[in-house]
Deep mutational scan, measured.
Amino acid sequence: MSIQHFRVALIPFFAAFCLPVFAHPETLVKVKDAEDQLGARVGYIELDLNSGKILESFRPEERFPMMSTFKVLLCGAVLSRVDAGQEQLGRRIHYSQNDLVKYSPVTEKHLTDGMTVRELCSAAITMSDNTAANLLLTTIGGPKELTAFLHNMGDHVTRLDRWEPELNEAIPNDERDTTMPAAMATTLRKLLTGELLTLASRQQLIDWMEADKVAGPLLRSALPAGWFIADKSGAGERGSRGIIAALGPDGKPSRIVVIYTTGSQATMDERNRQIAEIGASLIKHW
């Protein structure tokens, strides 16, 4: 068994979910400061990975656009189908120029040979490839089937209604394609530690997140040497930005962190900087 497989195998399969305990108010002060700096709502939650206990939260039950963070949930649904014998990671999917949508850096290079389901999930999570996400959504039956998958695992909040790139529209008070920080954190924890997926599929999902190549300016920029992070970022219209992550010291994950913001006029660089500063405070007061 590899070190990575050993790491995931040791994560307990508890489903406990406790009331908020504000253990590190310094980080919450930074979250509130980020709201002021961005002129926007910021949602934040931090869960203990083992117990599910809420360590910190701010606007945990307010809706925020999911943006590309939904791609982790999508690949979780795909892996669930693989575990059930309904899908194969090695199955090759062919597509055409007409299937390509905005921001598809991986799929646009494989119009001739197509891509396997495994490769599409990797592209969707590590590079946030939008066409890969749409092709994967098609394999499970579309956005409503992803919502149904989430409902079946106990998440009655998170919903996907549209395809890429329309799902990033982020209209105020529009519940389409949204989640809440508390719901997303709990669902991510179930996918990474629960019995919904096999150990091999849980390991595959966290491996894809660990290999994320487009979230460098966010939490990763604040991470000390030797820390572990597996994450997925998202960006949308109307100043929307977000990240979901499993992270921790000593090379293994010990907490789930979810950060969303929407409604800002700030630049992407400024949104990234504020999320990175929240991450720096989190690590400082770990």
Rank of each mutant, 00 (worst) to 15 (best):
E56L: 07
Q203R: 14
A185S: 10
A266G: 13
R271A: 09
L197M: 07
L218N: 03
Q97W: 13
M1R: 00
V8I: 15
A124T: 08
T187V: 10
I243E: 02
T158V: 03
L191Q: 03
L137P: 00
S233F: 00
T138P: 06
T107R: 00
D231R: 02
A183D: 08
P143T: 06
M184L: 07
S240G: 12
R176T: 06
L47G: 02
S2A: 06
W208L: 04
P165K: 04
S221H: 09
L196K: 15
T186I: 11
D174Y: 02
S57I: 09
K213D: 02
C75W: 07
K213E: 09
Q88W: 15
M180V: 14
D129Y: 00
P181V: 08
A182V: 13
V78L: 08
A266Q: 07
N98D: 10
I283L: 02
P181M: 01
T139A: 14
G251F: 07
A170V: 11
V78W: 01
T107I: 03
P224Q: 06
Q88T: 13
T126N: 07
V106G: 05
D161H: 03
I3V: 07
L89E: 05
V21R: 03
T186L: 12
L223H: 02
S57A: 11
A246W: 05
S80V: 12
N168F: 01
Q265E: 11
F17L: 09
E169Q: 15
G236S: 07
D269T: 13
W227L: 00
D177A: 01
R220P: 02
R176G: 06
E164K: 12
Q203G: 11
L188T: 12
L188G: 03
R238M: 13
R220A: 03
T267E: 12
S80G: 12
V106R: 07
A246T: 14
I283G: 03
W286S: 00
I3R: 08
W227E: 00
P12L: 12
D177Y: 01
S233C: 02
T131S: 14
L47V: 14
F70Y: 06
L223S: 07
R189K: 13
G234E: 01
V21D: 05
L197C: 03
F22T: 06
H94L: 12
S254A: 15
E164V: 01
P165L: 08
A170G: 13
D83N: 04
L160I: 14
E166K: 11
T198P: 06
D174H: 03
N173S: 14
M180Q: 10
R162S: 09
A183Q: 15
Q86S: 13
M115V: 06
A225T: 15
A15C: 13
N152D: 14
R159S: 08
L223G: 03
R63T: 11
M180L: 13
W163R: 11
R241G: 04
V42C: 08
R92L: 11
S221V: 12
D212K: 04
D177R: 00
S201G: 11
E56G: 14
Y103A: 06
L55P: 01
K53M: 12
E237D: 13
M268T: 07
N168V: 06
W227A: 01
V72C: 05
G239P: 00
P143Q: 05
G216R: 09
A148V: 08
A266C: 12
L167Q: 04
N98T: 11
L223Y: 02
Y44H: 03
I125T: 06
A235C: 02
S57C: 09
L120V: 04
A215Q: 04
G141V: 03
P249L: 05
P224E: 06
T139M: 10
A200W: 06
T158C: 02
Q265H: 15
A235T: 06
A148G: 08
L223F: 05
K213N: 15
R238K: 14
L160Q: 07
D207N: 07
G248E: 01
D161K: 02
L136I: 11
H156R: 14
G239H: 03
P217A: 12
L136R: 00
G76D: 00
P65A: 05
S254F: 12
E166Q: 08
E175K: 12
A215D: 01
G226W: 05
S240T: 07
G234S: 06
I11A: 08
L38W: 08
G43S: 06
W163D: 09
S80W: 15
L28Q: 10
T178G: 02
T158L: 00
K252W: 09
T179C: 04
R220S: 03
I206M: 14
D99E: 13
E175H: 13
T126D: 08
N168Q: 02
P65S: 05
D99N: 08
P181Q: 00
R189A: 15
R255G: 01
Q88L: 12
A170D: 09
T69P: 03
G242R: 00
S80M: 14
I3N: 13
L223A: 10
T178L: 01
R81I: 07
L188R: 00
L219M: 12
A123G: 06
H94Y: 14
V258G: 04
F6V: 10
G114S: 03
D36G: 15
M180T: 11
L89R: 03
I140H: 03
G226V: 03
P181R: 03
A225S: 15
I125V: 13
M268S: 09
K109S: 15
N98S: 13
I93E: 03
D129G: 00
A124I: 02
S240Y: 02
S96F: 07
L191G: 01
P172C: 10
D250H: 12
M127I: 09
H24D: 10
S233A: 06
L38A: 07
A222H: 13
T186R: 15
G263W: 05
R162G: 09
V21A: 15
S254R: 12
G194C: 07
G85F: 06
Y103N: 04
M153S: 15
A200T: 14
A183S: 14
R91C: 03
I11T: 08
L218Q: 02
L89H: 05
E119G: 11
V78G: 00
A170S: 11
T179H: 00
R189V: 10
T107S: 13
